[in-house]
Design a protein around this nucleic acid. Structure first.
Lengths: 219, 219
DNA sequence: GCCGTTCGTTCAGCACAGTGTCAGGAAGCG
DNA sequence: CGCTTCCTGACACTGTGCTGAACGAACGGC
């Protein structure tokens, strides 16, 4: 996989780059948003690792620009522990995942592996579920009645479930993905989203397992 | 994942246990090294969270014993901020990681998630029992007639029995697991659940051993 | 700038599966 | 046969989850 690493800390940058290379992927390491923009305009990446604190601008703007131009490249955000709002904003801006600095290199490998698995091989991996056709990379879903649009959060939830179809996914794990690890107040946000997802995707695509979580189309 | 929590502080213990459960894992919480030893001898855990200051001995000795017996179970040490040497000794004794008390539950989730991800590559282990196929991770049971759904409590009881198939499990142990210690109301709840389980799983999957407890399908 | 739209979130009321209790009956054991 | 232990159907209660509505914030078009 071709991976773009945007990170201005020399020590961390080189460590991550080496790790990526050791995993058999191809890293491009840049230290500024300007360089990152240049790279993304000429090369198509399979994954972008994006630090949010950079010398020449806010990483979030870069991410938004990327998404606005229609790029579906998976983006993993690298962020400091105390910048919680950044993380949430990141997810809103279209990030796929995040890593809290300082992170374990093993952790990084795991996330990269997850992305690799998700988009493995073919350029347009398609998944079929019930009567839906899902294109992970393009984030598009097609039903017999036509295409279905999901909002940012809706997609995240759907994707979490999609990673382990047939398995019960506890609410806690979904929250974790939506809001990072920080303690959450009692809220039924997830239920609301599931409700909306069901309305869009079909009543029986997502199954409730009372007291445990949700499950996607039983294998 | 099955996780053993060794912690004698009631407040912290219950908080951690609840957090683990919310993540969809299965916690066993004990307060002494004696209990911990007993647990590890009968059950195979995916992760152990170990407090080092315990009433009946040093946690480090427990850890060393574990490693000496060849157990490769990942161990995360819980330690107070000022006991730095403990941490170092812990890592030397074979711990995989440590958490400094007081720690954030979010932090804990992250570490557990890291371990979980390490295990998640391989397909879910499946257990066969009579004509049932059980997927622990997915919490799903399949019979020749189709999938079987269990409620929260039903699953807990089934899981307890499943830990030691062929062995007699006393009612007390099941109660303990259902109601975390504070149990002991004269009630036939467990009998009711066993009855329900039998109705769902098949009449002769769970065997009654009069006066002692229950036993799962003798092999 | 202003307005319409979309999205995320909270709230409140409703529905119902899950839980526990009980009582009458069955089954094991001396 | 009598006593204990266990089974199981019925029932009431409760908490969990569902969903329509409403509101603020962010965004985009004009």
């Amino acid at each position: 996989m071709r991976i773009l690493l945007v990170e201005d800390d020399r020590g961390l940058g080189s460590a991550v780059r080496d790790q990526i290379a050791a995993e058999g992927h191809t890293p491009d390491w840049v230290e500024t948003l300007a360089d990152a923009t240049a790279c993304t305009q000429t090369i198509s990446y399979d994954l972008i690792l994006l630090d949010l604190m950079l010398p020449d601008g806010r990483g979030l703007d870069f991410l938004r620009g990327l998404r606005k131009r229609g790029a579906a490249t998976p983006v993993i955000i690298l962020t400091a522990r105390d910048r919680i709002t950044d993380r949430i904003d990141g997810l809103n801006a279209g990030a796929d995942d995040y890593l809290v600095k300082p992170f374990d290199l093993a952790e990084l490998s795991a996330r990269i592996g997850a992305v690799a698995r998700r988009y493995s091989g073919n350029p347009n991996p398609q998944v079929h579920l019930a009567d839906l056709t899902i294109d992970l990379a393009a984030r598009s879903i097609t039903s017999p009645e036509g295409p279905i649009d999901l909002s940012q959060r809706e997609w995240i939830i759907f994707e979490v479930l999609l990673q382990r179809p047939g398995t019960i996914v506890p609410k806690g794990q979904i929250e974790e993905r939506l809001y990072s690890f920080d303690a959450e107040v009692e809220s039924n946000t997830i239920e609301v989203y599931v409700s909306r997802l069901r309305k869009k995707l079909g009543r029986d695509v997502i199954e409730t397992v009372r007291g445990m979580g949700y499950r996607l189309g039983r294998a």
